[in-house]
């Protein structure tokens, strides 16, 4: 039996990196979505939510075109680094971030909205500047939203298959993540490896979710009656 540990390592790296990038990117985006009263907020919200409904192959197809080294962003990247975005780990990270964007944005946006203008106004009258209010009030009051976002993005990236296959292919150590390795094992009738990898992925995912929901409970404070 051969278990592709390299694929596990790569998958974890990909998921972890995607979480870090998305929490940073989604924070200003979610803040803007939660607080802006502009008419075109709805357009942006719909755009951000697209990956929720599109088949991964559709996203993968467009990203494949965008990442191609002969034109557009792919060409720019190629001229900058000398490496193509297609079929590379970097490309995979960017694709994951785009594909999981709604999973980060929506929980954080919800958390920001539920912080409420009232508490921030109180902070302002107590001498807190806008940035101070964000870091000392909005952010700590939104930590459950961040936790949810991190878990969803991590889990979603673990389970990613279609997009990876379209733009990453199956290069060991570069783009071969667990879901792809598992698919290959099944294709080659290597059911023993497939069983083991599937079981490990399932067990691992369950443990992650269990830890997070446990933590989430401990974080809980009754916001509703907090005044």
């Amino acid at each position: 039996m051969n278990i592709d540990w390299q694929a596990f390592l790569l998958t974890t790296q990909l998921a972890g990196l995607t979480v870090v990038i998305l929490l940073l990117v989604a924070t200003p985006l979610a803040w803007w979505l939660a607080h802006s009263r502009r008419a075109w907020v709805g357009w942006v919200e719909a755009l951000v939510a697209l990956p929720l409904v599109l088949p991964p192959t559709v996203m993968g197809f467009y990203l494949l075109l965008l990442f191609a080294p002969d034109s557009g962003p792919g060409a720019w990247w190629f001229s900058l680094t000398g490496e193509p975005l297609n079929f590379s780990f970097t490309g995979l990270v960017i694709a994951s971030a785009i594909y999981s964007l709604p999973f980060a944005t929506q929980p954080i946006q919800g958390a920001f909205s539920s912080v409420g203008e009232g508490v921030l106004e109180a902070g302002a009258t107590l001498g807190a500047s806008p940035l101070d209010r964000f870091f000392r009030l909005a952010l700590p009051l939104s930590r459950r939203g961040y936790l949810t976002a991190a878990v969803l993005v991590f889990a979603h990236t673990l389970g990613e298959f279609g997009v990876v296959l379209m733009i990453g292919g199956n290069i060991p150590g570069e783009t071969r993540v667990v879901s792809v390795a598992l698919y290959e094992a099944v294709e080659t009738l290597n059911y023993g490896s497939a069983h083991t990898m599937a079981a490990i992925l399932m067990g691992f995912s369950f443990v992650v979710l269990l830890t997070v929901y446990g933590l989430n409970r401990r974080f809980a404070f009754r916001l509703g009656s907090g005044g």
Partner: peptide, 20 residues
């Protein structure tokens, strides 16, 4: 002058304490 520079103390109808 923005509120945080006005040196006021305000008490609202709802207390608006920081729950965390």
């Amino acid at each position: 002058v923005p509120p945080h520079k006005r040196r006021i103390g305000m008490v609202f109808q709802d207390a608006r304490l920081f729950p965390h």
